[in-house]
Simulated assay, not measured.
Amino acid sequence: MIDAIYFDGQSTRRNPVTLIIHKRVIALRGEGIRRNARLSQVDVSERLEHAPRIIRFADGATVEIADANFDKMLRANRYREPRITQWQQNWPLSLFALIALVIILISGYQWGLPWAADRIAQHLPASFEKKLGDEGLALIDKHYMQPSRLSPAEQARLRNLFAQMKQPHGDKTGYRLEFRRSQIGPNALALPNGVILMTDELVAMAGNDHAVLGVLGHELGHVRHHHSTRRLLQAMGVGIVVNFLVGDVSSALATIPGFLLDQKYSRDFERESDQYAIDMMRINRLPLSPMADLFKKMGEEREYRSASASEEGERRNRRRTKADNKRNVSMDYLSSHPSDEERIVKLRDADRKQ
């Protein structure tokens, strides 16, 4: 027999009682209190080191027990803790569960989330990507880019050249080619709504129509495979879809400009788009070496800027201004892409096999 505190579930009054368990029947006795119940009819809280155990009755009444002998009484009456409680109190099983949870979380992030993003992106309504892309373009134009200085005739010529190209695999992917003068240097990017932005600086650095067309084919590959949307869903979680469906995309739209300017596509995405560009140039019987030359030139430019920044940093006791950082980062068009060497070799090999 042990002492306990009984609460009737109707008030906060503490009622001292004595408790005994016999033949798997709990008996409570106290002033004006006589209550019996079978162990199978009550819920017994799990054992914690510094907390009392609680018996909960179906009608909401509870019994609070601080006496350690209660555990012995339970064992004597063949009470078995719930299986989950047994696992929690078994450290090898708890360690195994923790390791399993970590593996599941890592696997979900590494493979599950990309898979889910891919499935969702393939079935999203076109209005979703259009809204994201339109709002993203407006914000990019407001904060990061200015109207192109290429002549209207030059812009029309490049648009016409690309429009005349056949898309691989019989694709009819919709897109809109736009030119901008940029604060981020030579760059090209694809928005979720199918808009492909190419900067004047990239056109100037390419110095060759075939190089420009190859880069545009690469960006069209991103559009074709919904890479921007899939990457955005992965980065923000698929909850963005729920927010969109209930009409609240403000939080997503606020992050889009910076996200699109720093699209850390996976290398698989980049290789997929590189292959799309190769297939597109091949089907149109256009050389890929100019595109390889452009990548080499951009890589050399990036290395030069990196070395210059390092030397400047040493002269200034390793202190660089925010403006320096912005210029150095903005040139890194290939930052998340496969290595320059890998891409250049692949493009030149594709040229030799044509």
Rank of each mutant, 00 (worst) to 15 (best):
L213K: 02
R224Q: 15
G214T: 02
D209T: 07
G207E: 09
G214A: 14
Q167M: 06
H225M: 12
L191T: 04
L197R: 12
P186H: 12
L191R: 08
R176V: 00
L202F: 10
A190N: 04
L189A: 07
L220P: 06
A204T: 12
H222E: 06
L220F: 06
Q183C: 02
L197P: 11
F179H: 02
N208W: 10
R181A: 14
G170S: 00
R224I: 01
I184W: 11
E178Q: 09
L189T: 11
A206W: 04
L202P: 10
L191Q: 02
D200K: 10
G217V: 02
R176D: 10
H226M: 13
Q167I: 03
R180I: 06
Q183T: 13
L216C: 09
L177H: 03
G174E: 12
R181L: 15
V203E: 00
G170M: 00
G174S: 11
L202S: 06
V203T: 09
N193A: 08
G207Q: 07
V195H: 13
G194T: 01
G170Y: 05
E201L: 08
L189N: 10
I196V: 11
T199S: 15
H210Y: 15
V212L: 00
Y175P: 01
L213W: 09
E178M: 10
P168H: 08
L197Y: 11
I184A: 12
Q183F: 11
G207W: 07
G207P: 03
A190D: 00
H225K: 14
G185H: 09
H222G: 06
I196K: 01
P192N: 11
D209G: 12
V203S: 03
N187P: 13
R224Y: 11
E219Y: 13
F179M: 09
G194N: 02
E219S: 03
P186Q: 05
N187S: 04
V215Y: 04
M205S: 14
L191I: 00
A190M: 04
F179K: 00
H218C: 14
A206N: 08
F179G: 03
S182R: 05
H210L: 12
G207H: 02
Q167S: 06
L191S: 05
H225V: 06
R180V: 04
L220N: 05
D209F: 06
Q167A: 04
D209Y: 03
L197T: 05
E219T: 05
P186E: 07
K172T: 13
G185Q: 02
G217C: 05
E201H: 10
N193E: 09
G217H: 08
A190F: 00
H225F: 11
R176W: 07
D171S: 02
M205E: 14
A211F: 01
R176K: 15
H169G: 07
E201I: 08
V203Q: 01
S182A: 15
G174T: 12
E178R: 15
R176P: 01
D209I: 09
L189P: 00
H225N: 15
D200C: 13
H226R: 15
V195A: 06
A204N: 14
N187K: 09
H210K: 13
Q167T: 08
G174Y: 03
L202H: 04
H226A: 04
G194H: 09
D171V: 02
H210A: 15
N208M: 10
E178L: 12
F179Y: 04
L220C: 09
